[in-house]
Design a protein around this nucleic acid. Structure first.
Lengths: 365, 365
DNA sequence: GTTAGCAATCGTCATACTTGACTGCTAAAG
DNA sequence: CTTTAGCAGTCAAGTATGACGATTGCTAAC
């Protein structure tokens, strides 16, 4: 009874200061999380005592730990084991981090040296970037290239490729869409493509996809023989805009298996199965509007059970959105990951800029 | 001593008939492999006795098993356990299969029903096909789309996309290459692209890539202002031909974890790590010229340790090569896999033909 | 060449015991 | 009221032990 009362009083006290833990509790909690991140072993009171700079007895720490446990920050696997952080503790830890994030500039050099090798196409760059992130952090990495919605069509070209079909090339402010073939009418005359091309550019040039969608009804007024062609192309642009598939690159899946939390087959299986579903993975790695970084700890909302997902958003040429992130255990090394993701940003930009400065020139016009 | 002699005589006898095992040995071996494929448990002599159609004592089987073990077909995990097949036994088993492969037509219906859903681009078809193979077989599946070497260029188009650059579209008998942007000279005149286009088509139309490679020297005679453009495009065609990257699609990685042979983390890790290396994976899944199927059991040559890789080659439109295969434990259900791979062939063709009949028409011209 | 029977071998499982690592509690000191 | 030291209690993990069952190889008989 006395015990129960005592605990109760402690709880009430803490609930009173809900938002803030006492200085010492915060300090202890951070030490504990940091140590757990590197050891993956339950942390005992004497472990914390050793890490603690001032002299303080393990008994005092024990009572603090007991209190933190009641508050939901710690979990005890069994009664005579140390304690491990809960997801709540990780969140608190991550929130406390940014102030300490700066400083570790070492990885920049590493990243740049990785990129020294000659690379070909943009897709290669992205794949290599994903490999670099995975190698440096030693976690599984994911890069998502978003299909965009706020795109302005600059011009449209039709290229006859024989067999009554044409390749449609749509040049936008964010890049070139060139993956579409449409059928042409069998009885078309000589100047058909040229005329169609003019009509298309008159109708669509310098319009956003939303605007184009609205013109759908007004094409009824156009010449009959181009109606089906125009419809095809509008549909094509719409399909592009709603981004059926973002492009998803995953590298270093097997790295997950380096961590002891995934040494049981059933756990690793559920995680890998979720990573294999690229559509959902794309959503998970996506940072919400307005944030530069996103941290998802554990399952809740749209994360993965037993995992943390840290991701960052990048913009290329002001528009094209790329989200890159890593997947690892909840006790992932957040500091390192933040660092790497920040600097990868610069590295990618440097490369992309060099390759796509033609696009920049176009913007400048 | 007597024992040793006896064993020796047995061995000598078998070595005498190296190429062929006795009827009964073959039968026993096949039964044993088949049973091990479904149970994953060491097979005892009495297990074989139960499967054996004629009446035969377990003691007889024991002596046959002992003999097969000496010949390297069987392995005994420990002295009082049943026996498991060696890679040599799997190879013998697979070679004995084709005669029995026919018959199981069930999967065709399954496959077709899988494909009923609407699909978009060719890449989607392939990805879906990979998922289908993986789902039906319950193994990890890989599809490799080969870049081709014996391609004939039909025509080349240049499309101005602004910013002193052009999109190069190369139409070949095997498809359209449209992923390349080249830089244009800054001081080009009005008709530059048209002229360049004419020169290109005069030089390259209806030539194979090998032939184009040879024209490299002869362009010295052409007008200076087009020289660098021509060189760019030749390089581009060459790069395409030597197939830096085949496109590799992998689906169902997590399925590996369903099998008891991969319930130790270190084993599954090495396998997954190798599957993640897409370049090597492409080579592994590739069937050598002249074979329709390829079976790689275990590590030797270019397989994966503790795995079997079964793959098949397909041709689309007579040229484009696609290799599809599955990766699973050595005791994989070869019969089922052969069946699925055979029928997927038909299913893919049906879909591709429907989507690409424009290409076929072109061939007919 | 085949069969039945038997002793020997070895993995698996359950049990029990020991050890070591923590904790929570209490009572005393600051 | 906080902190500390000491102690008893708890539990996971490791180790030794023995019974059990599965399976084999060998031998002798058919």
């Amino acid at each position: 009874m006395t015990i129960a009362n005592r605990q109760k009083s402690r709880v009430l006290k803490e609930v009173g200061m809900q938002t803030k833990l006492s200085e010492r509790k915060q300090k202890i909690l951070k030490l504990l999380v940091a140590r757990y991140i590197s050891t993956a072993q339950p942390i005992s009171s004497s472990d914390v005592k050793n890490d603690y700079d001032e002299d303080i007895s393990s008994a005092t720490i024990r009572s603090e730990l007991a209190s933190l446990e009641e508050l939901g920050y710690l979990i005890q696997p069994h009664v005579s084991a140390g304690r491990i952080p809960s997801n709540k503790a990780y969140r608190m830890y991550v929130e406390s981090l940014p102030a300490q994030t700066k400083g570790n500039e070492l990885s920049v050099a590493d990243i740049r040296s990785y990129f020294e090798r000659k690379m070909g196409e943009v897709e290669d760059i992205i794949r290599t970037t994903a490999q670099v992130i995975s190698d440096i952090t030693n976690y599984t990495s994911v890069i998502v290239v978003k299909k965009m919605s706020e795109v302005v069509v600059k011009s449209i070209k039709l290229v006859d490729i024989g067999a009554e079909s044409a390749l449609v090339i749509i040049i936008t402010n964010a890049g070139i869409i060139k993956d579409n073939i449409i059928d042409l009418p069998k009885d078309m005359g000589g100047g058909y493509l040229d005329t169609a091309s003019k009509i298309l550019n008159d109708l669509f040039a310098d319009k956003s996809i939303d605007e184009i969608r609205k013109t759908k009804d007004s094409i009824e007024n156009e010449l009959k023989e181009y109606k089906s062609l125009l419809n095809d192309i509008i549909e094509l642009i719409e399909n592009y805009s709603d981004g059926k598939h973002d492009k998803v690159f995953v590298e270093g899946r097997a790295k997950l298996l380096d961590y002891p939390e995934y040494n049981q087959i059933d756990k690793v299986k559920s995680v890998l199965a979720q990573i294999d579903k690229k559509d959902e993975l794309g959503d998970m790695i996506t940072c919400n509007e307005g944030f530069e970084f996103s941290v998802k700890i554990g399952k809740d909302e749209d994360g993965i059970d037993n995992c943390s997902i840290v991701s960052a958003r990048y913009k290329i040429d002001g528009k094209q959105e790329v989200h890159a992130g890593v997947i690892g255990p909840e006790r992932m090394n957040y500091t390192k990951v933040f660092n790497v993701l920040s600097h990868i940003d610069d590295a990618i930009k440097a490369i992309i800029d060099k390759k796509e400065d033609c696009n920049d020139k176009e913007e400048d016009k």
